[in-house]
Design a protein around this nucleic acid. Structure first.
Lengths: 260, 260
DNA sequence: CGTGCCAGGTGCCAT
DNA sequence: ATGGCACTTGGCACG
């Protein structure tokens, strides 16, 4: 247990130095912003980071119960020094987080660089780049036209051209595809078809697809192809695409029936 | 700075007691699971919670750079005691997180209940319940039929009946509506229309809607209504609906044109 | 257990 | 700033 007055000074100093601050103590929390929330008095961990992020953690889940990013932080003693009030606020959207400490068990400031070191592989971006190296694994004769092309209505993962000169729009998902993926692909396929004025196919490329999403996909005249990839354990190389299997014979005639 | 051997014992004891553990020290991190990632040696905060959640925080952002939920945690000394290796693993999906400490600055175990106290208001669920009290604010004569009805293809927020005996499917969004909201509503409207075999309208109810999403909505013959609500500051009452404005004259004839 | 979807989503990137 | 979207999305509720 430590004095709230000393804590106030420590916090102010740490915030100024952009240190990482961990505060464990009894506190109540009020949030008013995009929603409102209250947390009754209880013991929690408050984490303040050098970029102004604040998060309040209970002893469960990875997500904080309350949080705010890019805040201005202030700190004051109340009730004759029996409470320490920590305020984090932000404009646009207007948000306010108020943490009232009745007691602090522990407070630490750690000097820590504000960096982002994480090297992650196996993301959709990785898979996209790998596929662009060799689209023939999706279908013989498929040639790349563009990737990550921005349309009015969204970003199209891959555009290609098949042996018959049709445009092929490919939407890639790193995990089981759902409704959203299907409707995305549908939008892009129509966009490309309209722009290019040529017959355009749409292929959803994913390790799997939800059953209902598959139904919708087929109703919309789109195709699904199963993508198998494996992650390289050490991360020094990007993910490897193991195989690719067509789950559906190519649909040569598209009817574009009603979504439903 | 503290001995790694003592740290190992502290961690094992804390994990067993389901305490909240904070460990600050120099570590490298490897993750292998749904993706792979590596984090070179550097100072970070490792947070272990009573429910088996593990997260590694850098001095920026609210989200941890690495994390895992519901893990089994083990701990061992390596390289003749110069490294402490913390392993968190999980089956289904198989995931492994390996944290190698070269030094620990600080390690604390806090006894903390595993509870969820948060009382949040202004969620979609709140708004939904409020609307059900009085659907006439959306449109005079609108009567409730059902809410949160589960279909094969999803959950329909509100089903109502208008003065003319049409079914009205309402999809509610607490923030600016996007493509996903429009396609959701479209799915439900068709589902209801098919089930009930009666003319069915679809209304997207949100504070705002993205311009492109609005275009799609209109092409699909759906309606949009602007929802204004305000949050009650103290949280003792749920959010209050301030007003509701029709941005579009009622479409009496639905053409259901092609999406895109 | 899978399916669907909300979330104060967060965070990233491109226009 | 806004838009569009991926995310090791997380977390929940319901079948």
């Amino acid at each position: 247990m430590q004095g709230l007055s000393a804590a106030k000074q420590e916090i102010e100093k740490g915030v100024l130095a952009k240190s990482m601050l961990t505060i464990v103590g009894d506190c109540s929390v009020d949030y008013l912003g995009r929603a409102t929330s209250t947390l009754a008095m209880g013991k929690r961990l408050v984490l303040i980071k050098g970029d102004g992020s604040v998060s309040i953690h209970q002893n469960r889940l990875v997500r904080p119960t309350n949080y705010m990013v890019g805040t201005k932080i202030s700190c004051e003693l109340c009730n004759g020094g029996s409470n320490l009030v920590l305020r984090a606020s932000k404009q646009r959207p207007k948000e306010d987080l108020t943490i009232i400490f009745s007691g602090i068990d522990d407070l630490k400031a750690y000097e820590m660089e504000i960096v982002n070191d994480l090297r992650l592989s196996g993301s959709e971006r990785d898979l996209n780049e790998m596929l662009m190296q060799d689209l023939s694994m999706i279908e013989p004769g498929l040639k790349p036209v563009n990737q990550q092309q921005h349309f009015q209505k969204g970003v199209c993962d891959i555009i290609a051209e098949d042996r018959e000169g049709n445009f092929v729009v490919i939407e890639l998902k790193r995990r089981q595809a759902d409704y959203a993926g299907v409707t995305q692909l549908h939008r892009y396929m129509h966009e490309v078809q309209k722009m290019k004025g040529r017959k355009t196919r749409g292929i959803l490329l994913a390790p799997d697809i939800r059953k209902n999403a598959k139904n919708l996909l087929e109703q919309l005249g789109l195709e699904f192809a199963k993508l198998d990839f494996e992650l390289t354990p050490s991360g020094e190389e990007k993910a490897k695409i193991k195989g690719l299997e067509r789950k559906q014979s190519k649909i040569t005639e598209h009817m574009h029936p009603q979504q439903g």
